[in-house]
């Protein structure tokens, strides 16, 4: 199946999203990803095949039915997979939500640079959450299987210039992304950004392994240990003074 303008290829829907953006959110996980992160929690969303072709109208209706739960800051998050792979269809989806006054958010790796993706980043989305996978191109390739840090930085810059709010999310992988050098790079690169509202540190965990195994895929980070509380605390203490709002998920 391929995305069309009035349909999205959906992996699954979580109507009680409390971890992917502010408030209570309808999280639409889209099928298919342009990367293959070694620790991916949702390995079953990576394949470009599969998923359920879903009318945008029905997704908007689902969100409307949730309006009473949203309060002041809840809304819809598209996640994945990589939602920007379906950026063309996301535009009418977000426009439909906007018409209903529903807050929109994209959880993206930030590599896609299509005209539609840029439009979503610079204009349409009320919030963008960029995943910063690594702090060097080599590191990026090790974790995701491809280079792309430059494109991510361009997209973050685009969002910053559009003066709209965004968050960064950073998985703290022991031995890969938790060095002092990496953390310092984050501070140097982003601490001056005015519209970066929140910095989320995501501790590394292996909860998604069972999905890899059930798909018959090899989980290459098996030997990577989960963070110690001290490691998390250290990263938090280091980043905290430099950003508006730093939280550990």
């Amino acid at each position: 199946m391929s995305p069309t303008e009035n349909k999205l290829i959906v992996h699954s829907i979580e109507s009680f999203g409390t971890h992917d953006g502010p408030g209570i959110r309808l999280v639409v996980f889209l099928q298919g990803c342009n990367l293959q992160c070694k620790y991916c929690q949702n390995a079953d969303t990576i394949a470009l095949k599969g998923g359920t072709s879903t009318e945008i109208e029905s997704l908007v209706k689902r969100a409307i039915n949730m309006k009473t739960y949203f309060g002041d800051d809840g809304g819809v998050t598209v996640s994945g997979g990589e939602p920007m792979l379906q950026s063309k269809a996301l535009i009418p989806f977000f426009e439909g939500l906007k018409k209903e006054g529903i807050h929109t958010n994209i959880d993206t790796n930030g590599l896609i640079r299509t005209a539609e993706a840029k439009h979503l980043i610079s204009e349409l989305a009320d919030l963008v959450m960029f995943d910063v996978k690594a702090t060097t191109e080599e590191g990026f390739k090790t974790i995701t299987g491809a280079k792309g840090l430059d494109r991510l930085l361009e997209n973050i810059q685009l969002r910053e210039q559009s003066k709209k709010p965004y968050w960064l999310r950073y998985v703290l992988v022991p031995g890969y992304t938790d060095s002092e050098e990496s953390l310092r790079w984050l501070i140097e690169t982003f601490s001056e950004n005015n519209h970066l509202e929140k910095f989320e540190i995501l501790p590394y965990h292996k909860l998604g392994i069972y999905k890899w195994e059930s798909l018959g895929m090899d989980y290459q980070f098996k030997e990577v240990e989960e963070n110690t509380p001290e490691q998390i605390e250290r990263a938090f203490e280091m980043l905290k003074p430099h950003f508006k709002d730093v939280i550990v998920k």
Binding site: F16, T18, G23, I24, T68, G71, K249
Partner: peptide
Amino acid sequence: KSLGSTPEMRIENLVRTLDGYFGC
């Protein structure tokens, strides 16, 4: 944990859930 990552968020999200459900 599904209610939110901090005790304050859990309270807030449960209140919203109740407001939302009864609002329907």
